[in-house]
Amino acid sequence: MRSLEAEYRQLHADGLLDDAALARAVALDRREAWSIHLELRLVTWIAVLCVTGGVGWLLARNLDRLGPATIVLGLLAAATACALPAIRARFGDRAPGTVVEYALLLGALLASAALAYAETQFRLLGPLWTWHLLLLAALHGTIAHALRSPLVLAAALTALAGWFGMTAPFGMPFGSGRSGFELGAAAIACAVVIVGWRTATIRLQPAAGFTETFDQFAANLAFWGALAWCVRGGWFMLPGVALLAAFATLALRRGLAHRRESYVVYAVVYSALGACVVLGGFALFGPLPLLAIVLGAAYVLWHLHGRIRDGTR
């Protein structure tokens, strides 16, 4: 069992830690205060995964026995039940808590499954079936804004990215049969839409607290889009490289201004990936330039991390 109390007291004696910070640090160190917030979050995520996985499994096996209408109604009823605690918290003006947030996410996901299943069974959208992911994004987005849930917003942004053709978390364009140029254009277009959504949210609902979620999705989609254009090779590489440089600059500025490590990591790692891809496109050099890029990226990342840690810009 670790104890750093002596170090905290030394810092306090040297005037580097105020009384309140010392009291808090010592209380945590002595385990007088112990938070299981993280473990609860993890357990709840697994529970939601179990339920959604089980529902998917059940749908696949029992379609004929249960009947489509029963399935859709059952899923919608379950979704409503899951959302009730969050609705009560919202209208009771109370903070919903982590687990209630996840229950709401489960409700949103069950509603997704119900809508997607209804579409396959009843063809509600007819020839416009490909718009169902956009419909889901709108539904999740509405729920997220109404109940101020960043988790449901993440689900909305995932559906939106899916509509644009991105299939993995944070918009990574894996597993698609489309060309690099198409994927890149789709990812960048999706990032632009997300930035627009973010701007509107900041104006219309400034207290929503969604900025970080929007920014993480937009940043990753934009970087993957630019990378996809770099992979394309030839003259298409040029706009990809230019965009990658522009996105890296923006991410760096945000990371350094707000001391957010993640954006600095994105800027450096995606830029290094882009440089390796461009160099690989020429297929002229051996591993030496790649090694130089990797070591250069490590040096830059280390240096920038130091600036974030020291609070310098």
């Binding site: 979050r41 995520w45 959604t52 749908l59 997607a116 396959t120 689900a155």
Partner: peptide, 23 residues
Amino acid sequence: LDLLQAAGASVLAQGAATNDARA
């Protein structure tokens, strides 16, 4: 873990949105 939480929600959302693929 905040990043992981958003990524985790994204993974779950993909699973639910494609449940229909299991039909």
